[in-house]
Structure formats: C-alpha cells, structure tokens
C-alpha cells in the first residue's frame, strides 16, 4: 500500500511546501488541453455518434495542442515549466527525504545538476504520451468505420482500456529512471538498467497506482469537458496540479522504498519534533 499511496501521504503531509512548485506547471498543463475537441468528442459520444474524425480524436487525447498558435505556445510553456519545476521540486523533496530538512540551501546546485535529465525525461514522457494518443486515435478512427454503432462503443471502450494499460505499463518501466539518475549519478543507460531492476519488484503496484490516478483524471476531465471553458480550465488546473505532484513525488517515494533507503522525513529529530 505504501507504493500506491505513499506519495499521497507525503503530499498531504507537506502540502504547503510542495504545492508552490506545482502551481505554474499545473496551470500550463491545463491550458495545453484542447477543450473544444474534448467537448465535441464527448457531446457526440453521448449523443450516439462516436465518429468525430481522426483529428478531433488526436486533439482530445494528445498533449500537443494543434488548434491555434496560442495553443502551441501553451504547449511549449507547459513543457518548459514541467521540466524546470520538476527539477526544482525533486531537488527539494530529495533533500527533505534524505536529511529531513525542508530548506532552500543548496537547492540551486542540485537543481542545475538534474535540470538536463529533467528536460530529457519530460521530452521522453511527452513523446510517449503523444505516441499513445496517435495510436489510440488511429485505432478509434478505424473502429469508427464499422457500421454497427453499439459495436463501435464496445470496441472503443476496449481499445481505450487496452492502450491505456499499455501506456501505463511502458511508463512504469521507465518510471524510476529519473530519480535513479538523480541519486546515483550514473549515465543514462546504466541508470535505466538499474531503475528497471529496482522497479521490477513493484511493477504491478506501480501500474495500480498510475491506473487509480489516471482513472480519476480521465473521468474528471471527461465530466468537466461538458462544462463551459473557464469552469473546465479551473477543474483541469486543479487536477493537473495534483497529478504533477503525485507523478513527481511518487518517483522519490518508490525509489526510496525499492532502493531500501531510510527516509529521514519520517523520523523524529533529536528534540522530539517532527521536521
């Protein structure tokens, strides 16, 4: 259970310390979502027409906005802020977990150390998610050529479940790559090999924790897509803030657990107070 909910425990215990790191990337991630495409797809889906066309599907599932130049700017901003704030937050949380200190001293040095890896990993996960979106949209588009509409609904749901599971599985394979590189200082390939070995024992739990978060995110965003744009934006921003927090913090909690490192943030200090 610690693997699945350990990150949430940390987040809620240290909410006011980690929340500032997630505000900017969360807002930009929400802005990078395409409300008009999601709304059109969902309205059609609920009205009995699950065949909106390939580009609408791609815009709905993808993370790269293609509807306007402003959308493109939001996507670039989301990419940059996710990389920068993930590097900042992970440096901060690592120090807290290793030393039990929530101070900013030495943060900049560690931030500069992990920033290149953060950019690389952000690019990797963006590419992974966009590949998932392209494949899923292509398959849903092929399925929409089937004349029997009830069958299209059933196959659409099956395809979304199957390819989402595949996405989460692949994400779990690379999940500890970043913290492994951050803590060990190994090269990219060696840290990947080591992280793969570490994650092997907790893979099913990792996938379960991803699936729980993704299911909530998917359902909430789908529900919010029926709301007006600004309401959707607020809901999406809140969801994205917590998703960003959970995705980043879980990396560290799972890494500390699998590498059997002591968590100083869980221990009492010598005065008897919790830090």
């Amino acid at each position: 259970m610690n693997t699945v909910f350990g990150s949430w425990k940390y987040i809620f215990k240290n909410l006011w310390s980690v929340l500032p790191f997630a505000l900017v990337p969360g807002v930009f991630l929400a802005l990078a979502l395409d409300h008009s495409a999601a709304s059109a797809y969902l309205h059609g889906f609920l009205a009995g027409d699950p065949r909106p066309g390939f580009l609408v599907m791609l815009r709905t599932f993808g993370v790269i906005r293609m509807d306007s130049w402003l959308g493109g700017v939001f996507t670039v901003c989301a990419f940059l802020t996710v990389a920068v704030f993930a590097a900042l937050m992970l440096s901060f949380a690592e120090k807290h977990m290793r030393l039990g200190k929530r101070t900013a001293s030495g943060l900049l040095r560690q931030f500069l150390n992990v920033l290149p890896s953060a950019f690389l990993l952000t690019f990797f996960y963006t590419a992974l998610f966009e590949t998932y979106a392209i494949i899923l949209s292509a398959i849903l588009f092929v399925l929409s050529a089937i004349p029997a509409t009830p069958l299209v609904y059933v196959l659409d749901v099956a395809a979304v479940l199957f390819f989402t599971f595949a996405l989460l599985y692949v994400a779990s394979l690379f999940y500890l790559w970043f913290p492994c590189r951050q803590m060990t200082g190994f090269g990219m390939y060696d840290s990947l090999l080591y992280s793969y070995r570490l994650a092997a024992g907790v893979r099913s739990k990792l996938i379960l924790s991803f699936a729980l978060s993704y299911a909530v995110l998917f359902a909430a965003l789908a529900g919010a897509a029926l709301l007006p744009y600004y309401a959707y934006l607020i809901v999406a921003a809140v969801l994205m803030i917590f998703c960003f927090l959970s995705f980043c913090i879980r990396m560290l909690t799972v890494y500390f657990e699998t590498d059997k490192l002591d968590r100083e943030d869980l221990l009492h200090n010598y005065r008897g107070y919790r830090l």
Partner: peptide, 17 residues
Amino acid sequence: IVTGVIFFSLTYVILHL
C-alpha cells in the same frame, strides 16, 4: 497482433487523410 493492428490503423489513417 497488437503491432499489426497498430500499423494497419496508422496506414489506414495515412491513406484516408
């Protein structure tokens, strides 16, 4: 089967577009 379905779908989309 999985890769076949994926590549068939992508080819279908390319030809359709």
